[in-house]
Design a binder for these strands. Structure first.
Lengths: 138, 138
DNA sequence: AATATCAATGCAATGGAAGTGCAATTACTG
DNA sequence: CAGTAATTGCACTTCCATTGCATTGATATT
């Protein structure tokens, strides 16, 4: 069990107060968040800083980007076993049409997708839309 | 084999020169196009007109919208058997990381995706990224 | 410890795409 | 041919993503 500081250092990212706060914020959230969500949580910080922090995290495979079809990019922390780079490890995302939240279904791996001859698959993005467990239980 | 005019009329869409041109443009393209693509092809026409025309086509299930993860909405003509509304009929899209083109793999249906208890699946968006047949043949 | 160096942050501004209101034009109806 | 309704064009707005540059802060070197 490593600390956040150790994690950042192991990825060659300088430890700053801002980065620690943003990491903790993402860790607390169970859903994928937009930049605006982060902005609202840190009103004192500049939007650009938050943007670049998330981008840095993304480059270093600390968060992954999610395009759930809302048109707004969302971000979520990679989990322990989340090897974003490796195609076969990609999990799917679920977007609720009711509450508009997007969750990572980490344990649900994407089945192998066959593509026609000549096509080379490098990456798969799968978003299921519908009603999430919280909303369907109403 | 019905004409484009007949198709539009059967969907209760007024036949205009603009709409016929845009339909033909989409029919000629084998790939999904952005609004900017259409704009470049019809420089005389106003962007808003093109925008609203495509939206009209979309509402009447003549084109379907594709979110391939580039952040820009793309559109492609529905084919004969394309029942966009029906989940089980959804095909997948392939986005080439090299030429940046997105194609509909109409014959490749999306496999049934299982979601956890409590979640209700209404819609699935699946985009495979990699190298397309044209680019891999280089 | 002082300084040099490089990264991180904040501010301002830009660009691109999506969308809306309204007036002018065009196409259908009786 | 007149009247009505839909379509088109223009101007404008909004929202998100992104960049340039100056400033602040942190690390390394002497």
């Amino acid at each position: 069990m490593q600390t956040i500081e150790e994690l950042l250092e192991s990825k060659n990212i300088r430890v700053t107060a801002m980065r620690l706060l943003i990491y903790k914020f993402l860790a607390e959230k169970q859903i994928a968040v937009t930049l605006s969500d982060i902005e609202n949580a840190f009103e004192k910080a500049d939007r650009t800083t938050l943007y670049r922090t998330v981008k840095t995290f993304e480059e270093k495979d600390i968060v992954h980007q999610i395009d759930d079809g809302t048109g707004i990019t969302k971000y979520a922390l990679c989990e322990k076993g989340c090897n974003c780079e490796i195609e076969t490890d990609l999990h799917l995302h679920f977007h609720c049409n009711n509450c508009n939240e997007t969750v990572c279904l980490t344990e649900h791996k994407i089945p192998q997708i066959k593509v026609p001859d000549g096509f080379v698959s490098e990456n798969v993005n799968l978003v299921v839309k519908g009603i999430c467990d919280k909303c369907s239980g109403q």
